[in-house]
Amino acid sequence: MAENHAMTPHALAHHFDSLDQQREAGTLGMWVFLITEIMFFGGLFLTYILYRSKFPHEFVAGSHALDIRLGAFNTAVLIGSSLTMALAVYYSQVGSRRLLVTYLTLTMLLGLVFLGVKGIEYTEKFEHHHFPGADFQWEDPAQAPALDGNPGAGKVDGRHVEMFYWIYFAMTGLHALHMIIGAGLIAVLIVLAVRGRFTAEYHMPVEITGLYWHFVDIVWIFLFPLLYLIGRHE
């Protein structure tokens, strides 16, 4: 977007023939990037699967200590933000600057709500010494803690609950980092949209940021059941 062009100022880069080609390239680039993201999170999902099957009781115990209401609330918030993002993309396509700005702002606010709630959850974990590391404590009043690191039925080894929390913090932390980046990208889009940089012909940045935002939502759609729901009934 560096070069000027007679028809659409600032929009068409010098090495593309048409805005269509440029948009398709940008979209494909974002899809490929999202595939790399899947592989990046994939390493953590593999770790989760391995240790979940190795320490099922500890994972259930750790999962029980998470606040399912806050988790569910955040899930709803994110799904809502996906809707507003989709609407923002739609209004960028039809060229409505006012509604584009409105829905982008809503999306960013919902993202910030999610991060705020996540912050509350994290604070609670710190206070209960459930953040892994030297301060980590696990007391299960119903069951005597196992001593030998060999989890039998009903026995829960605190060190392996700590493992659950490592994975919890790694996965949700990495997800939250992506949310922060996403919120920053949307903030830039809002500024550009207010300045009238997007038109019905040129709105590729809104589209590809939308793709990114939906991807981050989908990651959470997997994280929520894996971390909060599975084995809850046990």
Binding site: T36, E37, M39, F40, F41, G42, G43, L44, T47, Y51, K54, F55, P132, G133, G149, D157, R159, H160, E162, M163, W166, I167, A170
Partner: peptide, 27 residues
Amino acid sequence: TPVIAITVLLLAFERVVRIGIFDPALG
């Protein structure tokens, strides 16, 4: 490449704060 990225990240965490993902002593 993303897989080596996350692996190196885990390795770094493990080294700095002993998260135990690769440490048999911690399961």
